[in-house]
Nucleic acid binder design. Sequence first.
DNA 1: ATAATACTCTACTTATTAAGTAGACTAATA
DNA 2: TATTAGTCTACTTAATAAGTAGAGTATTAT
Lengths: 136, 136
Amino acid sequence: MLSKKTQYGLKALGYLAAQYGKGPVLIADIAAKKNIPVKFLETILLILKQNKILDSKKGKGGGYFLIAAPKNISLAAALRIIEGPIALLPCVSLNFYRKCDDCNEEVCALRKVMAITRDATLKVLEKKSLQDLIEE
Amino acid sequence: MLSKKTQYGLKALGYLAAQYGKGPVLIADIAAKKNIPVKFLETILLILKQNKILDSKKGKGGGYFLIAAPKNISLAAALRIIEGPIALLPCVSLNFYRKCDDCNEEVCALRKVMAITRDATLKVLEKKSLQDLIEE
DNA sequence: ATAATACTCTACTTATTAAGTAGACTAATA
DNA sequence: TATTAGTCTACTTAATAAGTAGAGTATTAT
């Protein structure tokens, strides 16, 4: 299950996607509209900025905004930044690979199944984008 | 990511699948072969027994064994018992549904995407079984 | 019967992560 | 230069993960 942090982050991104092209949006605005604790949201947006999904402006008229068009940012990319690995086991993660404690990766049956599962999940998440998080 | 508990549980089930039909297997045996802390494994196997995946016999010649043939137990079923929900959000879980805090489920775009993701993941996990966890 | 075997159950402990908060600091604008 | 608004460091609290200890109960062999 996704952490609250990730859920908040994706909701915020959906809101910013809807406002794309309309200039910076206040943290407080997003927090209010999406029912997210302001201080918590600050840290989430900062992480997204450090990872080149968002940019920001300080001072009056400032706020956060998407660097790229919503349809060009996949949910997989967003998820990896906020939540971490998408795979169910570290040893089949494409972006956060870690070796298993002591199973032989060539042989491990669990690994094989989890790699297939990862592919199925990724096929959806790589295709879907922030565009798909925009509410009517 | 799956918890250690779940990884241990699935490895143990894979081992029991390989021994299916050969009578009870000792906890200590499984633990030794699969490098799992014995006491931890005890609690995991007990949960699987309470959920009708395994049965056990006490005393000499005792141990744990699968109730049904490995190919008749899906990974989805095993995962749900040990790990819990397979979906990424409580509001799209088929077996562990919980309402989201304050988003409108009819409208929520995130929910829609996560339901599609769940379906893709389940399509694999429902089809794969303990048979697929048997090592050559 | 009874000793040995092996699962069962209650009750911990310890470490890590999740979730959120407080407050000072820095940059941009009017 | 005052106001606005994001940035950064450093907490706190609660929950969950991961594992342990030890007594109890059922079964089998002698």
